[in-house]
Amino acid sequence: MEEKRRMMEMEVLKKDPDHQQIDELMSATFSKRRKEIVGDQPLVGDVIARWPAMFCERQVRAEFKRVVSTDLLESFLDGLDDLTPRLLEVYEAATKSAKKPALKAILDCLKKDDTNERRRTAALLGLPHYLREEPSDIIRMCDAHGETLTAAMEGMQLGLLIGYEGENQDVFPREVFNEAVVVEETVVLHNFKDVPSSFAMHLGIIYCVNLEYPRAMKYSFEFLQRVVMKINQIKPLPESTASETSS
């Protein structure tokens, strides 16, 4: 398996890598990779160094399916579309019965541009506010041509960075330049153009690298897992944690 891992590592470095071969090598080394990630709990930087092929949309979706037998993007978007109308209704009701200015500001964005994609975005960005969570350290907006990437990611252990172009007068931008998944102040996935897809990839990375849900949005992610994607399977515990739980 180590030989196959090295083959994968070398293939990724090529100018024109063979994606079919990478798929086969990643599938063949799955058990070795899970043993390392779940058992050893390495830093994300170490995982990137040893398994560079995993950090792209194609491989995150493939790895997620190996872990939970579900198509990541399809399941996420289908589940979100089913729930978005109801979520927006309960958000609207919540803004009338309680002081939730952040949630109201998100809903107000739809009055200017009520497309399906923006309704999905409003449903996702409104969720932590509805659940009385604080998402500011998990979801950040930044001017693509303004502050540096390093400054935008400062202190970000796990989250989404949404880059926009031009003046952004709304709670979430109309023109998304680029979105990235950040882990330990490092961009691990990028080049997403819409919030729902980047949310799905964020969840996928959490599963692939066996991370805990960020505490500030724990209930939001559990909702996405159990209600939106209908996944009741609990992520595998690291060996040390599992031993402590058993004892």
Rank of each mutant, 00 (worst) to 15 (best):
S198K: 11
M1L: 09
F64L: 09
Y207Q: 05
D170M: 13
Y164S: 12
I48M: 15
E36L: 11
G79H: 10
D71W: 09
A49Y: 01
T115M: 04
N116E: 08
A200I: 09
K15G: 08
D170V: 10
G126E: 00
V44P: 09
L161N: 04
T84K: 13
V195F: 13
P128F: 01
I231E: 00
Y164Q: 10
L203T: 05
Q169E: 13
M229Q: 06
I138W: 00
D143Y: 06
E24L: 11
I139E: 01
Y91R: 13
P238G: 04
R215Y: 00
M141Q: 04
Q20P: 01
C56A: 13
L124P: 03
K4Q: 10
D46Q: 12
V228F: 00
E57M: 11
R58K: 13
E147V: 12
E2F: 08
L25N: 03
E3I: 13
E134N: 12
S240M: 02
K230I: 00
Y91M: 14
K99L: 14
T115D: 03
Q20D: 13
A98G: 14
Q20C: 04
A94Q: 15
G163Y: 02
Q21M: 12
A49N: 11
P128E: 02
E154C: 13
L83F: 12
Y207M: 03
A93N: 15
E2C: 08
K32E: 08
F30S: 05
S97H: 15
E11A: 12
S31P: 03
K111T: 12
L125W: 01
I138C: 05
D170G: 10
G79P: 07
T148V: 02
K112A: 11
L237K: 09
A152K: 12
Y91L: 13
V176Y: 08
P101I: 08
S198A: 15
D194N: 15
I206R: 02
L103F: 07
D113H: 10
T121C: 03
H145T: 09
A152P: 05
K32P: 01
L25A: 06
H190N: 13
L13H: 07
E24I: 05
D137F: 05
D170R: 15
R5T: 04
A200D: 03
K15N: 07
P196T: 06
M7Q: 14
R6H: 04
P236T: 08
S27E: 12
A123E: 01
V47G: 03
E167C: 14
M54I: 11
F55L: 10
L237S: 09
E165N: 15
K15Q: 07
S243R: 12
E89W: 12
E185L: 07
D194R: 15
L160V: 06
S27I: 06
